[in-house]
Simulated assay, not measured.
Amino acid sequence: MTDAQGRRLHACARALAPGATIVEIGSFRGRSAIVLALAAPAGTRIVCIDPHAGSDRGPQEFAPDAALGDADTAAFAANLAAAGVADRVEHVRAFSDAPAAFAAVPGPVELLYVDGAHRYGPALADLTDWGARVAPGGTLLVHDTFSSVGVTLATLRRLLPDPAWSYAGRDGSLARWVRTAGGPPSWAARAADAARVLGQLPWFARNVLLKAVLLARLRPLARLLGHGPADGPWPY
């Protein structure tokens, strides 16, 4: 999560009315959860869903590892406590498609932040099943859009053709969508929305190429693609 993305999370959480519900899918060690908890108005319910299975922790980390998962859970709890927000966050240690996860949030969601498994299948399921719970006028933030292949393909399949969603821009790879309220948008509005989304595909192609370059340790070529030391190990 970049600083700009943290500011976006903060702004979206701060704009909520008291009594709203925030759901985060994929919490890792709590950095984004802390931002949400510090920004959200009093009375906001914040539910963080993460199985902490030691898998899908970052680039090229797919296999489960129970010891890593337990360490992540402990770090998550410790970081929330250190930030003074442990009492504001509910942690559901389950996969996002598990019955326990859905049971924990029976009502509508005003802010949904998806940063779970980036493979196509899980990403599509999160956008479909959890996206359906976002209230009209609510916000969906999707991390690694136009950066991860799986997340981007899931976004193009699930959100782009759905008139219930309007693309509201991005901060790096953090895409913001708003669930439309009222009647469906006009065809002209939908066409303009699609053009804005498809206009991000060159940046997506650049990120896919950049990841291949970084994996091959071709740092000079990465710099030519605009990725320097200050940008961290991965394009976000």
Rank of each mutant, 00 (worst) to 15 (best):
G131Y: 11
A132Q: 06
A132C: 04
R133F: 08
V134I: 11
V134M: 09
V134F: 05
A135H: 15
A135Q: 15
P136K: 06
P136L: 10
G137Q: 14
G137N: 13
G137M: 15
G137A: 13
G138E: 13
G138I: 14
T139D: 11
T139P: 08
L140Y: 11
L140E: 08
V142Q: 02
V142N: 01
H143Q: 06
H143D: 13
D144M: 02
D144V: 01
T145E: 02
T145R: 01
F146N: 04
F146I: 01
F146S: 00
S147C: 12
S148Q: 13
S148W: 15
S148M: 12
V149E: 14
G150I: 06
G150T: 05
V151P: 06
V151E: 08
T152Y: 07
L153V: 02
A154G: 07
L156C: 01
L156F: 01
R157W: 01
R157K: 04
R158N: 04
R158Q: 13
R158E: 13
L159G: 04
L160M: 08
P161G: 02
P161V: 03
P161M: 04
D162L: 11
D162C: 10
D162Q: 10
P163W: 08
P163Y: 07
A164T: 06
A164R: 14
A164F: 06
W165H: 10
W165R: 09
S166V: 10
S166M: 12
Y167P: 02
Y167Q: 01
Y167E: 02
Y167F: 15
Y167N: 02
A168H: 00
R170E: 03
S173H: 03
A175K: 00
R176I: 10
W177L: 06
T180H: 09
T180C: 13
A181G: 10
A181W: 09
A181L: 12
G182P: 09
G183H: 12
P184Q: 08
P185L: 14
P185Y: 13
P185M: 14
S186Q: 14
S186P: 12
S186T: 15
W187G: 08
A188R: 15
A191D: 09
A191F: 12
A191G: 07
A192L: 15
D193L: 14
A194W: 14
A195R: 12
V197G: 05
V197W: 07
L198G: 02
L198F: 10
G199P: 00
G199H: 01
L201E: 03
W203G: 00
W203N: 00
F204T: 00
F204L: 04
A205L: 11
L209K: 06
L209W: 07
K211I: 12
A212H: 14
V213Q: 09
L214D: 14
L215V: 08
A216G: 04
A216V: 07
R217P: 07
R217I: 12
R217V: 10
L218I: 07
R219F: 15
L221H: 06
A222P: 14
A222C: 13
A222N: 13
L224Q: 07
